[in-house]
């Protein structure tokens, strides 16, 4: 069981959160021409890293805010949590 420190609410159980995927993926700019391959990469293709990883989580049963979590996918150690609009 993980404990995640929500930047808004404080330390909470993983049960209250929902995983939201890789936080490093950036959506292509609006109205910009984009190849099918780039769109495919944005929507589907992900690296499954072993080690430090920046993830999106939503505090679904708490403040309902999206947050960023820097977590080691091998050890589950959480290094840092940030508000969704913050960068490391």
């Amino acid at each position: 069981m993980l404990h995640i420190k929500c930047p808004h609410c404080g330390m909470r159980s993983q049960n209250e959160f929902s995983y939201g995927g890789d936080a490093t993926i950036k959506r292509p700019e609006l109205n910009k021409e984009i190849s099918d391959q780039d769109w495919n990469n944005f929507v589907y293709n992900r690296k499954s890293l072993r080690g430090k990883h920046l993830e999106l989580w939503q505090h679904l049963s708490g403040c309902r805010q999206w947050i960023k979590v820097e977590r080691d996918t091998a050890t589950h150690e959480i290094f840092k949590t940030l508000k969704a609009n913050q960068d490391i």
Partner: peptide, 16 residues
Amino acid sequence: PYNFNELKKDNCLNST
């Protein structure tokens, strides 16, 4: 799953 030992009077929280 919340640690209720920390909860004081006039506190509230969302949880499950």
